[in-house]
């Protein structure tokens, strides 16, 4: 099978305020405002000067509610993984703010377990490593017990505590990553492509585990993936990213059945449906060309170079992410298109 990029499950625990006051369900636990991450492009060896920037994340705002799962979808290069890294403070944001329970937080603890399962460390050491940095969560004498509990929680045999990562399969290694992510009892877990490297039959097991842990520990998830059917299954709300911006965000029903942004519509229509009977009445929008370079994105709407609806206005004005007043019912949700409209599906077909 295909390792589709790196998989990672990261956890954010605000250092000073870990597991304090409970936030009622439905309140935002994480507020992200105008988050920007540029990677500078430099020229010259001795005298480096900046000649431009890769605008990986360019003004992203959203709320993550207590206990909800926010799915982020988009194609490679859209900035979804950079967004995750900035949230987990693995990359410093160029601008913007991230507020946790209403407070500005300066530092987050982050782990990137899947990619960094040290082959020379036992599973017990790997999962228990966060306790080295945060001894207040589990004092030394209780660590072994805590790690065994975590193994049990993620469905691994607690007796495996002395084994090494290579003795586990891909799906089991993903579980070890999840166990380590849970070690510090976080409230928010950011999953970046947690199942894309796994086989179909094992994917479902990991998804089920994540859902079960969510209800058990009242976790909030940010679930970043490119597989749209899995994102729909697990998410309460979904944000669609294109070239560093969120182009549309709403509940799963609003996005999947009432998308108003042309890019979302094209993306959804391109997903192969596992039903050969639907082959004839597929109404696929095949986009032309490739995603433009994020170092030099198009003016105005970034999707306009591939959009069949593009008008002169799209090149001049950046469309705001908001609900347009001509839309009705479930089409009323934030969409960054000047001409947002539901796709007209020919019902007679």
């Amino acid at each position: 099978m295909t390792p589709n990029g790196a998989s990672a499950i990261g956890t954010t625990v605000p250092e000073e305020v870990a597991f304090q006051q409970e936030v009622p369900k439905g309140e935002p636990i994480l507020e992200v405002r105008d988050l920007v991450k540029y990677f500078p492009l430099t020229k010259g060896i001795l005298f480096r000067k900046q000649v431009g920037a890769v605008k990986a994340v360019d003004g992203v705002s959203f709320d993550l509610m207590q206990g909800e799962t926010l799915g982020i979808v988009g194609e490679s290069g859209c900035g979804k993984s950079t967004l995750a890294k900035v949230l987990m403070n693995l990359e410093a944001a160029t601008a913007g703010s991230v507020r946790y329970k209403g407070e500005e937080i300066s530092r987050l603890v982050f782990q990137d377990p899947y990619t960094s399962l040290n082959p020379r460390m036992t599973v017990g050491d790997i999962i228990g490593e966060p306790y080295e940095i945060h001894p207040e969560v589990a004092p030394k004498g209780e660590r072994r017990k805590a790690v065994q509990d975590l193994l049990d929680v993620v469905g691994l045999n607690p007796e495996y505590i002395n084994r090494y990562p290579h003795q586990f399969s891909g799906g089991q290694r993903q579980r070890i990553g999840i166990a380590r992510g849970l070690a510090l009892k976080p409230e928010i877990i950011i999953c970046d492509e947690p199942v894309s490297a796994l086989d179909v039959s094992v994917q479902a097991q990991v998804i089920n585990l994540l859902e079960q842990l969510q209800s058990e520990f009242n976790l909030s998830y940010m679930f970043i993936a490119h597989d749209l059917s899995i994102v729909r299954h697990i998410s309460d709300r979904v944000g669609v990213m294109y070239l560093g911006k969120i182009v549309e965000i709403g509940t799963d029903l609003e996005i999947y059945d009432h998308a108003t942004h042309p890019y979302t519509q094209a993306l959804l229509s391109a997903v192969p449906v596992p039903d050969p009977a639907a082959r004839a009445d597929r109404d696929r929008i095949v986009l032309v060309g490739d995603v433009p370079s994020p170092a030099n994105p198009p003016s105005g709407c970034r999707f306009r170079t591939r959009c069949w609806k593009a008008q002169p206005k799209c090149a001049e004005e950046v469309p705001a992410l908001m609900a347009r007043d001509w839309l009705r019912d479930l089409a009323v949700h934030d969409s960054a298109c000047h001409f947002a409209a539901e796709r007209e599906v020919d019902l007679e077909k």
Partner: peptide, 10 residues
Amino acid sequence: TALDVTVQAQ
């Protein structure tokens, strides 16, 4: 497998 869905369709 290594391609994005919109490109995969093409």
